[in-house]
């Protein structure tokens, strides 16, 4: 009994409960037809959301005003650059990935440099850099759509027992990041900064370096997502990152991470990503269009923040 009560108190549980509920509703509507397939597809698409959301979650956890708006541009740039350099050659898969990571590193450092040197809020820094990055991607790509190496494309769509290989890898990555968040000095410092940056400094924590590492890490995750997404969808497109800007924040918030910072959880990201995708599927199955889906998504985000924000206020 107490185990159930404890489970119910976990902040990530609601996202999973909602995801399961939506899935069951869909399955009920179709009388169970294709329910397994829907789940498999959901895992595939949720994977991409989770990759970027992990980075965004660490950034958001740094406290109010911290959010990375350059994620879509970074994805696009990393995707285009790596696809073009690999030029479809299978032996280039690993070097191509390293190039994507390098793009992420550069973008992250650029963001931090803007925040530090110009002393501007992260939101404006990442916004301005996103313009420049997006432009670089457009210039580099020149409208060409280079096909990914066949092995990469196969890899991103491969499945084991109906579960996408990519999803399994990202579940493992999420597990590792969960440990990083809760059990390393770095993770603890991120959470401490988000709760009270001044207290974190006065407790002797290295606030500056951890902030830097977090923005760089977020950009690297975004770049990695751009790489695999380009591989998955048959090449990089200039608008491939578009929907990930708002979605990455939405997944973080619905997953139970506090937007005020200082409280994060990784499992919730999976729940939220699955929920968002299954919600789309359900509404499509019901024959409702994109409009209703978007309105519902927005209302859910606001409801979550009103409930979560309220509980945080009471805790003080």
């Amino acid at each position: 009994m107490s185990a159930i009560a404890k489970l119910a108190r976990q902040p990530w549980i609601f996202a999973f409960v909602a995801a399961v509920a939506v899935w069951l509703a869909t399955a009920a509507f179709t009388h169970g037809q294709g329910a397994g397939g829907v789940l498999s597809v959901a895992f595939t698409f949720a994977t991409f959301f989770v990759i970027v959301a992990i980075g965004q979650m660490f950034v958001v956890t740094l406290g109010p005003g911290n959010v990375d708006l350059s994620i879509p541009a970074t994805m696009t740039l990393a995707g285009t650059v790596s696809m073009k350099i690999m030029d479809g050659a299978n032996w280039m898969i690993l070097p191509g990935y390293l190039i994507a990571v390098a793009v992420g590193l550069v973008v992250g450092l650029f963001n931090v440099a803007l925040i530090r040197l110009l002393r501007i809020p992260p939101i404006i820094a990442t916004l301005s850099s996103s313009f420049v990055i997006q432009s670089a991607a457009i210039w580099y790509n020149r409208g060409l759509r280079v096909k990914p190496p066949t092995l990469l494309a196969d890899f991103t769509t491969a499945k084991i027992f109906g579960l996408p290989v990519l999803a399994i890898i990202v579940i493992l990555i999420a597990a590792v990041m969960h440990v990083v968040l809760t059990r390393t000095v770095y993770g603890r410092t991120v959470i401490a900064i988000g709760q009270n940056a001044r207290a974190a400094r006065l407790a002797g924590l290295d606030v500056g370096r951890v902030r830097l590492a977090t923005y760089v890490m977020c950009a690297v995750f975004a770049a990695s997502c751009g790489y695999v997404l380009a591989g998955f969808s048959g090449g990089a497109a200039l608008n491939m990152g578009q929907e990930y800007l708002l979605s990455s924040i939405a997944v973080v918030v619905i997953g139970g991470t506090s937007v005020a910072g200082g409280f994060a959880n990784v499992p919730g990201l999976w729940g939220a990503a699955l929920f968002l995708f299954l919600l789309v599927t359900m509404l499509n199955t019901f024959g409702l269009g994109a409009g209703v889906r978007l309105v519902l998504t927005g209302l859910i985000i606001i409801t979550v923040i009103v409930i979560a924000g309220g509980s945080r206020a009471n805790a003080r």
Partner: peptide, 19 residues
């Protein structure tokens, strides 16, 4: 409710677009 405007308006952006 002393909410962060960024997230509330983020949610609203979905709502407006849907409408």
């Amino acid at each position: 409710r002393n909410l962060p405007s960024i997230v509330v308006t983020l949610g609203m952006s979905f709502v407006w677009l849907g409408l």
